[in-house]
Design a protein around this nucleic acid. Sequence first.
RNA 1: GGAUGGGUGGCCGAGUGGUUUAAGGCACCGGUCUUGAAAACCGGCGUAGGUGCAAGCCUGCCGUGGGUUCAAAUCCCACCCCAUCCGCCA
Length: 424
Amino acid sequence: MFDLRWIRDNPAAFDDGLTRKGSAPAAAVVLDLDVRRRAVQTTLQELQSRRNEASKGIGQALKQGRDAADLVAEVAAIKERTPALEEEDRQLGASLDQILATLPNLPAEDVPDGPDESGNVELRRVGTPVALVGAKEHYDLGEALGLMDFAAAAKLSGARFTVLRGALARLERALGQFMLDLHTREHGYTEVSPPLMVRTEALYGTSQLPKFAEDLFRTETGLWLIPTAEVPLTNLAADQILDLEELPLRLTALTPCFRAEAGAAGRDTRGMIRQHQFWKVEMVSITSPDDSQAEHERMTQAAETVLTRLGLPFRTVTLCTGDLGFAAQKTYDLEVWLPGQNTYREISSCSNCGDFQARRMKARCRARGDKATRFVHTLNGSGVAVGRALVAVLENYQQSDGSILVPEVLHPYMGGLTKIETHG
RNA sequence: GGAUGGGUGGCCGAGUGGUUUAAGGCACCGGUCUUGAAAACCGGCGUAGGUGCAAGCCUGCCGUGGGUUCAAAUCCCACCCCAUCCGCCA
């Protein structure tokens, strides 16, 4: 959501940002509506002012027993004109809101330009991709182990679901626990157990709505299943005026995520890469407007640490303008190496949304003693996607006999199990 | 699912048709006093829009949307949300 006054003052910069992000310029349309609306408001307000004055006069006249017929007539005349103006004001406002709510955030200045993911810029690589001869993909490994069952899941729920059993079910749990413990113990995040179903308002606040309803699952009572814990965690700050001194707020949660994947037909149809339901550890930071850039780097580091500790090779890329998400000013993606696919695949996305979400959800902060409030900045990052981390562990730790070594940091979480082998 | 009570500025809270221009309190800010602080006292203190060089003035907003009225926080209708109790339930 944007500040209309800012658009008024910087129409060129506004359009330039939208263009960079691959959206059509909108300043002309927005400002036209804005000008017309304010003209209507001015006329309306003058009429209302006269009406109020006349009404006061009527009250006084009646009290003093005088006749007020002329004033009553004047008010009646005004009332012939106001409903149409009120309706016009309402409609112009609704059009304006509708347009503003569907415009994406503008990219930060240092975001590289590019049409799509091909324009992303690699920042760094960590770890060495292992060139495994005859490396298998995770679904072959999992099914061979007898611990990953897509047929059973299909019978229960259809495509894009998985049943894990035994050591793989535990590995999934272990990964989530490990990540949560890391972020709470070493990165200063507070663990949260949020609702997995939320109101429309919450999804509007983080900007999944109104534009991306088709990506979401909705219950019969009108609640929505969260596509990411970013939604409940960020919305904890909605309608709040936070003390500047208590910022940043650092929140983390391990939750299932639900995605309709409506536009993903034919992509990643095999395996666990793209599911309707998956676990993810999410990190959310609520910061002062001055600190979000530094926090963004810090959060990305926190996500990288997960992969480093797990011994998974990865690279970090800066998303270019054409690949940025709707709410993000700037995003770093972490891409983990998958030997079975012989490529890097996204496993985490860390975004600085600036005040874009904060405006939508009215999340503000104020320094002690200050009168004015400012919108906070919000950041979210996966720390990391558990399902894809499981995929990465399987593929990177696969042995020639089809067994899987358990990464050392997970041993405590696996009850001492160090190797996952075929199991009946 | 049923019943009842509610929704007013950052917070609490008064207000059942026109002296409300939303009382009062808390918090906060400025000042007086004080060695300093506290207390006390004085003043300030919501938001969006319009207009003006400015001081200021004007308009809207009391959960949301309609309606009644010369005039609505106040009356009427619908909806949303919250709390409590009952029922059901992990």
